[in-house]
Nucleic acid binder design. Structure first.
Length: 484
RNA sequence: GGCCCGUUGGUCAAGUGGUUAAGACACCGCCCUUUCAAGGCGGAGUCACGAGUUCAAUUCUCGUACGGGUCACCA
């Protein structure tokens, strides 16, 4: 049987990292076994439906390269792929369950249920099964008369249920612990607890991959599969992703949605690579940089860990750097230009040089504006800026050096890397000075900042002749006027 | 609280009844250098705790502690 997995998000808002990770593993399990990956929209909660959420799901999957073989947008043999379009199916199957005695209509009001929950005396252990033993004929008549009701699963009262999960192993629970959960709501929409079983079976899902928060309700689903006489699929429950404090990942940990991460300037490939390694490792292989294609080849559910994994931004940063460094220069240059064009406005600047120095230093795109603010703004000088112990440089020495440098630079016929480099080298030789000293002085004069992407030559190139010479002059003025 | 699950350095993790217990991020140091980064080299740091089984336990069993999940007409 061909492996088939599904990503089944509900359109309730943003694409959380946890959702994306589920989608990724579902995709990888299917692809690693030459199987199919399908997309199903679980929109059975009409209260939480968010406009535009479905589009965000399509967009995210597309950007990440997690292409599905069946889904609402492309169809397929097991459609429709949107649960709200499958209501008649859930109704049919719920009826079968009622007929076979595996489910029953329940007429309890939400108020009654709420009261029961608030009652401190009797420790609430789920629905009290008030309607479970109503005469089926009477119940059927009340349903026929249009009385509001839900359909509940009639759990076995004795015995135990066990299933084997690919990650967590065999899990057994006492049936008496299981609640008579609601399968169909009073608005005739199914609950997740019912729809997931019906759809996964009808859509021929072989591997049900989902977060470990579903582990405790899985026995109930197994009983449902049995009631229908359906084969139980392979379960793969995924460990949770938590924040650096060990708590469930949430807003206060930083960006936790795919869109936020993109906005921060993380590359989709890096995000995918990062979350692939959250709770999974390839085993003997120690490499950690893998493209999606490489993951498809090497991924195995065997390598999935049980313990919750902490989402570490440090590691994401490193991953992102790795991906930026490997980006083809043209693509990188375009990304940089998108950001810097608006910063420089009308001013000319050397994009190629800027992109070049940035490519080996940037952690994430969002850091760029702050990193290069000194290029579009003249920052104030201070004497300390010129101090560098290793180069034996200080403001006094810098003052002398810059004055030596100025005529040489002003006299340059062309302003290119080669000429600048050669000229600076020559000045060093003539003045018998260490390169680091001269370059350091010039770099600080041009940038007015101690740490810069790129050295003196690159900075001079990026600024262009005019701006570079103006700044050199300004630095000399500052150093002259420093001590009257 | 009941039920379920988990625990290898700060983090992600490999792995085994006998190993010097991989590797990566972060951290520290050194080298290199036209700064800082990047890169190279090196360092520190771990099997939660207590019993039991065993010639031998990080590995198997049981407890304890801690952490997490779940107990909705949400998924």
């Amino acid at each position: 049987m061909v492996t088939k997995t599904r990503f089944a998000p509900s359109p309730t808002g943003i694409m959380h990292i946890g959702n994306l990770r589920s989608a990724l593993y579902e995709y990888l399990i299917a692809r690693s076994e030459g199987g199919k990956f399908l997309l199903r929209i679980e929109d059975t909660d009409r209260e939480r439906y968010v406009e535009g959420a479905v589009e965000a799901i399509y967009r995210t999957l597309d950007i990440c390269g997690l292409h599905h073989d069946e889904g609402p947008d492309i169809g397929g043999p097991n459609g429709p792929y949107v649960q709200s379009e499958r209501l008649h199916l859930y109704g049919e199957y719920a009826d079968k369950l009622v007929e076979s005695g595996h489910a029953y209509p329940c007429f309890c009001s939400v108020e009654r249920l709420a009261d029961m929950r608030e009652d401190e005396e009797t420790e609430f252990i789920g629905y009290d099964r008030h309607c479970r033993d109503l005469d089926p004929a009477v119940a059927a008549r009340r349903v026929a008369s249009g009385e509001p009701h839900v359909i509940r699963q009639k759990m076995p009262l004795e015995g135990e249920t066990s299933f084997t999960d690919e990650v967590y192993g065999t899990i057994t629970v006492m049936n008496k612990e299981l609640e008579d959960q609601i399968l169909v709501k009073s608005d005739r929409y199914p609950t997740y607890n019912f729809a997931n079983v019906v759809d996964d079976h009808l859509m021929e899902i072989t591997h049900v991959v989902r977060g470990s928060e579903y582990l405790s309700s899985t026995p109930k689903y197994c009983i449902l599969y049995d009631a229908f006489g359906w084969d139980i699929p392979t379960f793969v429950h995924l460990p949770l992703i938590v924040g650096e404090d060990g708590k469930k990942l949430s807003k206060r940990h930083g960006s936790t949605s795919f869109d936020e991460l993109l906005a921060d300037g993380y590359l989709p490939e890096a995000i995918i690579n990062m979350i692939a390694f959250l709770g999974w490792a390839p085993g003997e292989e120690t490499r950690e940089i893998f493209s999606l294609e490489e993951l498809e080849a090497i991924f195995s559910a065997k390598g999935i860990n049980k313990a919750p994994a902490v989402f570490a931004y440090d590691k994401l940063n490193w991953m992102n750097e790795q991906y930026i460094r490997r980006l083809p220069f043209d693509r990188w240059r375009a990304m940089v230009k998108d950001i810097t064009d608006s910063m420089f406005g009308e001013r000319q600047y050397n994009v190629d040089m800027l992109a070049r120095v940035l490519q080996e230093r940037v952690t994430k795109l969002g850091d760029i504006p702050e990193m290069i603010r000194f290029l579009t703004e003249r920052l104030p000088y201070s004497a300390e800026l010129f101090f560098n112990k290793r180069a034996k440089l200080d403001a006094d020495v810098a003052s002398v050096i810059l004055k030596e440098l100025r005529p040489a630079l002003e006299a340059l016929p062309v302003w290119d890397e080669e000429t600048l480099s050669a000229t600076l080298g020559r000045v060093c030789d003539e003045a018998r000075r260490k390169k680091g000293q001269v370059m350091g002085a010039l770099r600080v004069a041009l940038a007015a900042q101690q740490v810069t992407p790129g050295g003196a030559t690159e900075t001079a190139m990026i600024l262009g002749r005019q701006e570079a010479l103006l700044r050199l002059a300004a630095a000399i003025d500052f150093l002259n006027g420093r001590r009257p």
